[in-house]
Computed example of a mutant assay.
Amino acid sequence: MASKALKRAGLSPELCEQLKRHKIESCKDLLTHTAFEAMYAAGLNYQKTLEMMETVSRVIAPPPTTALELWKHHSGSCFSTSIPALDKVLRGGLPCGNITEVTGPSGCGKTQLCLILSVVTTLPKELGGWDRSVIYIDTESAFSAERLVEIAQNRFPDYFTSKEKVLQMAGRVHIFREMTCEDVLRRLEKLEEIIISTRAGLIILDSVASVVRKEFDTTLPGNLMHRSNLLGQEATTLKYLAHQFDIPVVLTNQITTHIGHQGSGSATEGDSGIVTAALGNTWSHSVNTRFIVQYVDGLKRQLLVAKSPVAPFAVLNYTIQKGGIYVNGNDGEDNFYEGTDPTLQTIRVRTAINLDTT
């Protein structure tokens, strides 16, 4: 919350403009100055300066609340995925104010799910949408406007009956292509005003692992710590934005291979290791909900609700069609769950391939 802009902390526009001249634009900027420094920058007397700093302090350190207040505030605050079986498991849909991660091998539908959620966000409320815009941060150049339109027209054919509606939907999905860790973090820190100006109802980061794994060789001294610090900053900023605006944040993640037989800690002849979500155990605690998408055989895939504050572990079989992801009628069958911790849940891939081991 320290990154909150001063204009959203209860200060007058004139005072915010005055402080901006001294490069003080966020709550953090102000509170890192002494009262005398802030007094000079704001052009106020000492008592007024103390009152200003106390006001800002209360904004970033709100008083404790009760479970009843949280329950009343978040009751019914769910975001429909337009996948009925998944919404049922999640008791209404993606929880707002939280971070949801989708992890799995390439080609399993992570980006497809992001595109479906983007379309749903723009739909009118009477159709189960939010009538809001989307902030889509693309770090892999995987976003396809053509595929977005195809999903919209095939998933909601009764609504997208005219070119005008399609164009309106596409115009509300705001794409930001960020190809370095620094660019991603800088974009996240500036999202607050963009969310307000675009009336965003969903933030998507596809993918959180892509730029991090390219820039940090964790076999080099110190890199693992720097990577963890960067991911911590990203998670903190995203959690703040999700909570502040009561909207869902959806991230995609990659997979990694841990060499050695599961449970034994040592490799054996012919053992190719186990595949799990990338970025490690510490990162797994930064997300509130984790979906794992994986192959079963051929075109058949599974979505595992591996971690959720509201839902039990669940397995849904699905296929990818022109309208995106569709859960099969036999969902719940062929449950391959082996009882491991969700953060260490093995992921089924199509074939044995060489994967990044970081």
Rank of each mutant, 00 (worst) to 15 (best):
M225Q: 15
E234F: 08
G232Y: 03
V250W: 07
H243N: 06
I247G: 06
L188W: 00
I259Q: 13
Y240D: 02
T256L: 01
P221M: 12
H261C: 09
G260E: 07
T236Y: 08
H243A: 12
A267Q: 11
R199C: 14
E193W: 01
H261V: 15
N223H: 08
I247F: 10
L202A: 03
T218Y: 02
E189F: 04
L231Q: 11
T252R: 11
I194Q: 04
N253P: 02
G263D: 11
G222T: 03
T252H: 05
V211W: 06
L202H: 04
G222L: 13
T237P: 05
L202V: 01
N229C: 03
R213D: 10
V250N: 04
T218R: 03
A267S: 10
E193K: 15
Q244H: 15
K239H: 11
E234S: 13
L224Y: 08
N229P: 02
T198F: 09
G260N: 10
T237L: 14
Y240H: 07
L202G: 05
L224W: 06
I259C: 08
N253F: 01
L205M: 12
D206N: 13
N253T: 10
G232T: 10
Y240R: 04
M225Y: 11
L220S: 09
K190I: 02
F245Y: 07
D246S: 14
V250H: 05
V250P: 02
R213N: 13
L238S: 01
E189V: 10
L202N: 03
T219C: 07
F245I: 07
E215C: 07
T219D: 00
S266D: 11
T219Y: 03
L238C: 03
V211E: 06
R227C: 12
Y240M: 05
K214R: 15
E193D: 15
I255D: 02
F216C: 10
G232W: 14
E192T: 11
A235N: 01
V250T: 00
F216T: 04
N229K: 05
T236M: 13
V250Y: 07
L241I: 06
I259W: 02
G265D: 14
G232V: 06
K190Q: 14
E193H: 00
K239S: 07
L230G: 04
A235H: 06
M225K: 14
F216Y: 15
F216W: 06
K239T: 02
L205D: 08
I195L: 05
E192Q: 11
L224R: 02
T236N: 09
I204S: 04
L220V: 13
D217F: 14
H258D: 03
A200E: 10
V249Q: 08
P221Y: 11
A235I: 04
E234M: 15
T236K: 09
R213K: 15
E189A: 14
A209R: 07
E234T: 06
T256Q: 03
L231V: 12
